[in-house]
Amino acid sequence: MSMQIPTLETRRLVLRGPEPEDYPDFKATFTSYRARFMGGPLNAYEAWMLYAAEIGHWQIRGYGMWMIHDKASGDTFGMAGGWKPAKWPEAEIAWVIWPDRGGKGYALEATHAVRGYLYDQLGWETAVSYIDPKNLDSIRLAERLGAAKDHDAATIDGNDAVYRHPAPAEIMGSQLAHGIEMEISHYADPLFKPKGWAID
């Protein structure tokens, strides 16, 4: 078996396939309280098994979760990508940012790039994100990405809310896309002050 995981570059980030040397950062988050909305906290054995499964997901589905790296330092900030384990009603766009890396717009920048890849390169026509209703940060991010709660869509187990992302045609060249780019620009260069927020 052999497959190549594509590398995605954004303004501040490089997204690569998860490598063995990135595991300690993953383990730190998934054995912590941060993982409470993602099936955790896990013990060290469970975290390793899940990390290996994240890599295996790529081989099985042909897509998966990228590791988000800082372009400048190479440090990891979290993960974002496509996720569809067994019994998932639909393919999901998912993300996690390490607890000490939040608030910088990395999830927005990474997830925007990932969604573009899944739509443009893999031909996804729609995507959802399954979010714990108590996970306010992720709900907020879903909304900044233009996703809206889909009350009719099947949930994983009834304990999650389904946020449906805008379709590819709704993003391409849209005010939404410009708003996301503008927000990322603001994070990347705090001196850049857009006049008002396109989405808020």
Binding site: M49, A53, E54, I55
Partner: peptide
Amino acid sequence: AWNFFGTEIGHWAIH
């Protein structure tokens, strides 16, 4: 079980 199967594949990539 599906996740565990993914783990079996990831094990190859890691080790």
